[in-house]
Design a protein around this nucleic acid. Structure first.
Lengths: 231, 231
DNA sequence: TAGCGTGCTGAACATGCGTTCAGCACGGAC
DNA sequence: GTCCGTGCTGAACGCATGTTCAGCACGCTA
């Protein structure tokens, strides 16, 4: 199957082969999971499987190119999408509403679901954004100060992202990108009540547990250091 | 390779073939991910790959038998392991400390990471336990009452479990069961500070956001219904 | 016009997987 | 003793995958 235009330079309307592959890959990985076969991606892009290897060397090379693309697109879109208290999770929900960004969000969710350090930098960026956002809140007086600002931000981001992952279909099953925006919106609506309540009215009626913990770590307490280890 | 005892009834010390397969399967799935090949499991159990199919019909049959085993073992162990506020996550952490239960916990984590409705009943049980536990706290006066007790419990359980998943290695990578208890303990220590703080001192300094939300849902507000849908 | 490199194809290869199947060993029933 | 069913094996099959490779088409350069 030859593409309509065989010109190497991408004229308006149709992309270069490499870009078409990348776009198809992000889409397929989001829909069918990160184990989607190269031939399916090639078919979607209207090229042969060999061309993918020709451009990216290997399957892993394609994955890395996808990661890079997603990282830059997330960074670019961050300015246009308002940051939100729940860290990066709400950012993903917001972004998925934007036309054409569903595949991007789907790929990110699939990568996080896959596990491992693949998008660690993306999560780290989200944590940093959350730190900054919470810090602004502290300055404005709307957010309470923390003894562990860094760890608190990471804790919130990881909880919000992780809860999202639990809702996903299995890696091998299909994720409908058409339904993704609505589905994410429904999920947000479902949790916004408990979330706001939990963040406004403390779960514990007294501070005995917190006090007990703080008293055990008063001596040489590393009030905010982050370790990152993997079993 | 014939097993030492060929007696069909399991004498003390060595299990029947079926049980050995099941044990090896849970172990392999936990260590190498749920895509671990049957031949590896067979090798671990000291049997041929054909025997697995003979007993369980197919790979999916083996998975379902593992799920059932894990479900019953979790139910049995629940009485001996104290329930904790953060829902099922802390239960997993506690259980992993017990000698010989690491594989069980690892398999549960792998299944949750895989996504989909595989262990939905387990999560539902955890939610129900959390509801009961929080209710006891309310009666004792240590936990604040919620407008959405069911949704709050689910929200907390899913957040706690999900955050745990984000820490896991990739499905294809190895999960060291020897290190799992220590690793889970380290993770707990890392988050207990922010968690207790967040649950004791409200994140928001005023209730404007919560009030705004509640005012929009005063009319015919379904104060606590749960929907479960998958995209 | 001749040469050449880039984009690209399609067939082929090697590998690993789940699954099938014909058949063996053995222990209890009759 | 004979029969039969159960537990079990090991080779084989069919399939899907990632990857390799020889070669084609086309546009640029000289």
């Amino acid at each position: 199957m030859r593409s309509a235009r065989t010109s190497t330079t991408a004229s308006d309307g149709d992309l270069t082969g490499r870009a078409r592959i990348l776009q198809a890959a992000v889409n397929r990985f989001a829909v069918d999971g990160t184990a989607a076969p190269l031939r399916a991606i090639a078919s979607d892009a209207g090229v042969s499987a060999g061309l993918i290897l020709h451009h990216f060397g290997s399957r892993e090379g394609l994955r890395e190119a996808c990661d890079e693309l997603v990282l830059t697109q997330m960074r670019e879109s961050k300015t246009s999408v308002v940051a939100r208290p729940s860290g990066g999770a709400a950012l993903l929900v917001q972004l998925a509403q934007v036309e054409g960004y569903a595949a991007l969000v789907g790929y990110v969710l699939r990568c996080l679901q896959e596990g491992g350090p693949r998008l660690r930098t993306l999560v780290d960026h989200m944590v940093e954004d959350a730190v900054a956002y919470l810090h602004e809140g502290e300055a404005a007086g709307t957010v309470s100060r923390s003894r562990f600002p860094q760890a608190r931000a990471r804790f919130m981001v990881e909880q919000a992202l992780g809860a999202l992952l639990l809702q996903l279909p299995a890696q091998q099953d299909r994720l409908d990108l058409q339904e993704l925006p609505r589905w994410l919106r429904d999920y947000s609506e479902r949790i916004v009540g408990p979330a706001l309540e939990l963040y406004t009215e403390p779960l514990f009626t007294d501070s005995s547990l917190l006090d007990a913990y703080l008293s055990t770590t008063t001596t040489a307490a590393p009030t905010d250091h982050e370790r990152a280890s993997t079993p």
